[in-house]
Structures are given as C-alpha cells and as structure tokens.
Write a protein that binds this DNA or RNA. Structure first.
Lengths: 216, 216
DNA sequence: CGGCAATTTGAAGGCAGTCAATTAAAGTGG
DNA sequence: CCACTTTAATTGACTGCCTTCAAATTGCCG
C-alpha cells in the first residue's frame, strides 16, 4: 500500500486540519477475537482504522455459511464500502480499532480537497483489491491458497515467512473453500516442498518462483 | 445507481467547470463488438464513459481463459480502478464510448471538491459492486445466474423482462462458469417455470419471489 | 495433565467441468 | 428471399475437483 494511504498522511504541517480530524476520532477501542465491531444492517455511522491485530469484514448467508470479504491489518481503513453496512466488521484476532465519524469525515472532505483525494485514493485502492479478489474466486483451490499466502506475506512484510494471524476457518471462508480443502491444499504444497511449516500457523516459502508459476 | 453518479451531474450552472471538463473529453468514439478499447498493460491515460452499448472489463489468464470482471452500461464510467490498466476494456456489443483524460480529471479534482467527491462517490459505488460480485463468486451456479439476471434486469430498467445484450460466453466468463453450465442452469430455471424465454436472449421473469428465495 | 478447540486425514458423493455432437441463430452472397 | 456458411447455444455422457460427513490427531490454555 502506498504511503499516502497510511493514517499518518495528514502531518504536523496543518494543525487546524489535524485538529478537525482528531475531533472525529474515538478510541482506540479494544476488541477480543471474534467480537463484532459493527453489525450487518447497522447504520454505518463510523469507519474504522485498525491500530493493531486483524479485522475481517463478513457477509453471512441464510444457510449458516459466511464469506470473509477482506482482512484488514494495522494502518488499514475498514468499513468504507458499506455505506449501509452490508457487511459485518469483526475482530479476527484481538485488535485495537479507532472509530472515525463518517459524517464528519465526509463534511471535511466536502471542502478539503486533500481529504477528499485521500479518501478517493483509499477507495480506489480497495476497489483494485476487491476486483483482484473477485477474479481469484474463479480459480482453483491451489491457486487461491497460493495467492492468499503470497499476498499476506507481502502485506506482513516478512519476506518468505508467514505467521498466519487468523484461523484456518477464517481463511477458508475468505477463499470460498472448506477448511478441509484448505488444509489438504497446504499439506500438498508442503509435500511438494514449495512451503515448509515450523508449526501450524508458521510457514516458510521454500520456492517462491515455482509457487508463482502455479497461479497462472 | 444514484443520480449523482450520472455524467450529467455537473450542470448548466457552472460554465467554467463545465468547460474545463469538456476540454478533457474526446469522442464519443464508436467500437464494434469485441473490439479492444484499452489493453491490459497499457498506460491508463483515459477513463471511459459508456454512451451506448455494453462494455466489459476483462482479465486474461495464461492458460487461455479469462474473467469478465464487470459489465458497464450507458452512463457508467469504466477504467477507474485500473490506474495501471490491470484489465482490458472491450466492447461487449457495438458501443459508443467517451474518452476522458485521467490526469486532467485528477488535477481538477485536486482543487475542486465537488469533482473530487463525485469521483469518490463513483469509486465507492464501484467498490460496493465489486465486493458484492466477489461474494457472489463463492456461491452456487444457480445462485450466480439468478443474481446476475435479477441485477441486470434492474439495471436495464424493464421490470421482469430482460433482453440479454451480451453473449452467453461473456456472461459465463463473468460468473466463473462454463457456457454449458450457464445454459443448463437457464434451462433448469425455465423448466421450473421461474423464467420463460421468448427467444435465446429474451427472458421473462415469471416468479421473482421464488427466484429471490433461491439466492439465499 | 486434562479438556476443549482447531486442524488433519479418510472415504464417499455431488456439482460443475470437459469433451463431443446436435441444433439454432445470425450473417453472406447469389 | 433463399441456400450456404459461420457463429452461438444446447444437450448428453463422463470425469474430476471440491464438499460433506466422520473420526483421529494436534495444539493450546487453564
């Protein structure tokens, strides 16, 4: 993610704007794993900035299933898309979340182009991710898992090393797979010596090139 | 789609702004079905306003397959997401398309909050659609087809009547299905008397309620 | 160390894909 | 307007990937 999208984009140079933005904030508030931050159907009064931990946005189905649309890491803004809260926002791990009043942010954006363009950059960035994600959902289980692991590795910033912060169930629901298929796919990658595992949630990429070939 | 997102949002009341925007435009240019408007990998110098016909954005896979990420109807803006043109933009039917210089639009947005917020509304709207689409891709073939037909019906504005403007192949690639599965699914809906067909591409919804139940 | 939750593994079944052939529709030239 | 060609869509038989259901194993936390 470009630096401009990080929360620190509005710097020390503009106390007035900084104050105005600060006035919109509440928190950070702490959530324990699986706690709901905003409920599907709620009024979308706030958007959320992840301070620590991992947050997921989910859509629940009538039949009991669910889809995890996205994971958000520290520095990411959540809840932008759902102006009517079409998704529930939940803590995927223990997490600290800053609340930002949507209406206030919008009214600042209405006369501050820099804020408007900042939000535009965020929305565009999320749109790009959502489209990539949608395309990924049309591909094979192996391709989905590899892409997810590779992307997560990049986002977490440790090259060739991934410590999965969320459960296999969350990942499976994100990839449109069952936990069984996810587990089997990871085992298969391990047996092919493309990845290795220190423990269940600690993975090492052994052959990044070969992995990337498999996503094509 | 909210009225504010339509291209006519900047009205007669502001000749200067209107002129500035007009100066960014080229066209409308005519494209025949299957012609490429912008190629995957191109610099994204323009964004596009569909004037008539249907436009699709596609991602091609190395193995020869492709995914149709979205269809765009008259009044829709295309090519917003791909700042680096990660998708190709093509005419799904004969179409007229207006070209708008991206850089110029962005520089206007940098000091015109109304333009910035207009773009923000478009991006947010597209983000919502992309997320809904991604979730849809995790569901069954029947659910995907029903949702697609229902949504298209709404977008085309003829209640309970759909004249498919694009080929089954395009629809199948959009839904992550094969044309065979798409065909079988439609036939099945027809046999269940949920829809009827005047001809291959002319459909009538016979039981909207029952259809909507099946998407849950 | 015990108990619960998370993950893995196995066996069987179903949904969607593949391959192939037929039918329907649309375009072309006489 | 009709015969012909080409493209698009349908249908059938079979395969395979992923799911489902069930049981065993691992890991975590008190």
């Amino acid at each position: 993610m470009p630096k401009v999208l990080k929360a620190s984009a509005f710097g020390q140079d503009e106390p007035t704007l900084k104050q105005a933005l600060a006035a919109l904030q509440r928190g950070p508030i702490r959530f324990r794993r699986n706690n709901v931050i905003a409920c599907e159907g709620d009024d979308a009064d706030y958007i959320f900035l992840v301070v620590s931990g991992v947050v997921r946005s989910c859509k629940a189905f009538k039949n009991g299933g669910r889809s995890v649309v996205a994971f958000y890491l520290p520095g990411d803004l959540v809840g932008w898309a759902d102006q009517k809260c079409t998704l529930s926002i939940e803590a995927a791990t223990d997490a600290m979340v800053l609340f930002i009043k949507r209406a206030g942010l919008m009214s600042i954006a209405a006369h501050e182009t820099r804020v408007a363009n900042f939000l535009l950059a965020i929305a565009t960035n999320e749109l790009q991710r959502a489209q990539d994600y949608a395309v990924l959902m049309t591909r094979s289980a192996k391709c989905r898992v590899i892409t997810f692991l590779t992307d997560l590795s990049k986002r977490l910033g440790k090259k060739n090393y991934i410590e999965l912060p969320m459960s296999h169930q969350d990942i499976a629901d994100h990839l449109g797979l069952t936990i069984e298929t996810l587990s089997r796919t990871i085992t298969q990658l391990q047996r092919s010596e493309l990845i290795a595992r220190a423990s269940l949630r600690k993975l090492t990429v052994r052959n990044a090139l070969a992995l990337s070939q498999l996503t094509k």
